[in-house]
Design a protein around this nucleic acid. Structure first.
Lengths: 189, 189
DNA sequence: GTCTATACCGAGATAGAC
DNA sequence: GTCTATCTCGGTATAGAC
């Protein structure tokens, strides 16, 4: 299984550095220091490689998210996680890829629903525990709010645009503060 | 200039239907019913075609946005516009493209800044006129809020995901209502 | 499981006749 | 401005020896 993992690692690196269009059998094989035929032997056609790579990443993210949601300040932890570029970079690339590759769409859609359900369940519980039901947003709106904003800011940052980012971040964090209080762990980086 | 426009139209169609990866000189030429050489004659290399296509779309969007911002309920109009799939589809495709094509990045970044500046100026004025300065968000935060959410919802819709979309939309529209009052023109479609 | 060889295609791009 | 011909490269994919 070492070859298999090497191929997935290589594909992931290339995808991050140059986008999904750069992920070709020839280049993946070269990067993994493996024969080109191996890619086909282990993964069949390219779509299967992408699918497998996505699953591997989703599983990792899923565990990471569960961890965040189980932490003392789950919303702050979730927010930190969503703002981590390394977390979203691959996801965004897969979203772009899925626009043209039908085989990928289903995998992403299923995975997203799975995440959304876990998030909803957790946030509902969190809001109830804190008795913050009245003056705050419904759980799903809160989730989509955090997801939307983090994704958008990351996207703009990759273009070196940052106009208004401070103001937007301040609004989000103000919202989190009203629910979970002052953040008790320092933000990453 | 008819050939030139035909090429741009063809490129735009293909980009929308199959993504930027489908936009090749050969296919564009075929779709435009034009010789392949014409693409090179009129646009030089592919990056120039993409750049030109982006500019054409951005100009159209710019005018459309200015119109929205000059309407009786500018925020509602802006929100409606942002939620229009035909408006964002091309943009999203260009964002994906720009992740790998350095030549495109600059064009998009410049254009985005231009939009953001126009939006900020307009929203600031609107909020001041309505004296809504105290209990609402700063202009840039409001813009980024609307941009983020609309983009995210559209992206998910293209995957046929809609969990929580109603709740999120309700929150946004509630926000708009507090600033501009009840919407007086019916939402499109 | 691994490697070589190879078929085949469609991509970008250019030269040059008309 | 238009069209044909053509070059080169790198992509996907398979067959078959080891």
């Amino acid at each position: 299984m070492r070859t298999r993992e090497a191929i997935l690692d290589a594909a992931e690196q290339i995808m991050l550095e140059e986008g999904y269009a750069g992920v070709t059998t020839r280049r993946v094989a070269a990067r993994a220091d493996v024969n080109q035929g191996m890619v086909y032997y282990h993964f069949g056609v390219m779509d299967d490689l992408f699918t497998e790579l996505f699953r591997r990443g989703a599983d990792k993210t899923f565990r990471r998210q569960a961890e965040a949601l189980a932490s003392p300040q789950p919303l702050w932890a979730l927010w930190d996680m969503m703002q981590d570029p390394s977390h979203s970079a691959l996801t965004m690339e897969f979203v772009a890829l899925a626009n043209h590759r039908k085989a990928i769409r289903g995998v992403i859609a299923d995975s997203s629903s799975r995440f959304r359900r876990l998030q909803e369940e957790a946030i509902t519980r969190i809001l109830e525990e804190r008795g913050a039901a009245s003056d705050t947003w419904p759980p799903l709106a809160l989730i989509l709010f955090l997801s939307s904003v983090s994704r958008f800011l990351l996207m703009e940052q990759s273009f070196e645009i940052s106009v208004g980012h401070d103001q937007m971040t301040a609004v989000v964090e103000d919202h989190l503060r009203r629910i979970e209080g002052e953040r008790r762990t320092p933000p990453p980086r």
